[in-house]
């Protein structure tokens, strides 16, 4: 029993240390948002009184509501479309096997490793020929068929019990009905995890939106942060404040979806 206690204490110590390291930069970021740039670079650790000033500076430089609206629009539409298209394909590749599709899938995995910088120029030519530059469509379209999410869903589908599908077939459900009414509810936690990831990727996407979105009124919050960071004399107070603001939505999404995990776990314990 004492060995058990010892091991337990070890686990708690390990987790506490990891938790401290995880959370410290957030603390630093939040404190920084209330300090002046000069105080931040010299490592001031206590909350200051510059929050309002930082806020005013930020508001004088960017149309914050607009920028957030743009980011939300892009991230939400991307997430819905990506989850739909990629989970369909992940399911399709795993459930209905054929030699041709296996080959295609292996090829896709290889494509996943091509650095985006190599594809950016031709992609930009395509988008501009389609008269789509400076539109959100141009940001969203190339990201919908995400090989990575497709791959993720295929891996997750391996755990989808085939008995469920067989039973549904016996009940006379069509394949699309099985996907919609059996697969999707069963794989709730997979969808939840994928939502977090896709939303974050869309929200944080940088290089492609930078090239495609051209006018200030179409900028996303990530582009704003990068512009602030790349400034000649970066104002770290304003940067950290913007970082806090930009992190909040992904944090909320995460907290909301986390319940899905918790429910899944409770269900499994029962």
């Amino acid at each position: 029993m004492s060995l058990y206690m010892l091991r337990r204490t070890g686990v708690y110590l390990f987790l506490s240390l990891a938790a401290f390291l995880s959370v410290f930069p957030f603390f630093w970021m939040a404190v920084g948002a209330t300090n002046k740039s000069t105080e931040i670079i010299t490592g001031k650790m206590t909350p200051g009184s510059n929050l309002v000033v930082n806020f005013q500076t930020l508001l004088s430089q960017v149309d914050l509501w607009r920028v957030f609206g743009n980011s939300f629009l892009i991230a939400i539409v991307s997430t819905i479309l990506t989850l739909a298209v990629s989970s369909l394909a992940g399911y399709g590749f795993e459930i209905f096997r054929s030699r041709v599709r296996e080959r295609i899938f292996q090829l896709l995995l290889l494509f996943l490793s091509i650095p985006f910088a190599a594809l950016m120029v031709p992609l930009f030519v395509m988008i501009s020929r389609a008269q789509l530059t400076n539109t959100f469509t141009a940001v969203i379209l190339p990201t919908i068929a995400s090989i990575f999410i497709l791959f993720y869903f295929r891996q997750a589908t391996k755990a989808f019990p085939s008995e469920l599908r067989d039973a549904a077939r016996v009940d006379g459900l069509k394949e699309w009905q099985i996907f919609l009414f059996v697969y999707m509810p069963t794989m709730r936690s997979t969808y939840a995890a994928a939502t977090i990831i896709v939303f974050m990727n869309a929200w944080n996407n940088y290089l492609w939106p930078l090239i495609v979105l051209q006018t200030p009124e179409n900028k996303t919050i990530t582009l704003v942060i990068s512009a602030l960071t790349a400034a000649y004399t970066p104002d770290y107070g304003v940067i950290l404040l913007t970082t806090v603001l930009a992190t909040l939505p992904t944090l909320v999404i995460f907290f909301v979806l986390q319940r899905q995990f918790v429910q899944g776990m409770l269900g499994a314990v029962k």
Binding site: M29, I225, T243, A246
Partner: peptide, 17 residues
């Protein structure tokens, strides 16, 4: 929750942090 937290930050934001 705490251990998940880092992955909600954007790459640019956490890098400059």
């Amino acid at each position: 929750t705490i251990l998940f937290l880092p992955c909600v930050t954007s790459l640019i934001a956490y890098s400059s942090l």
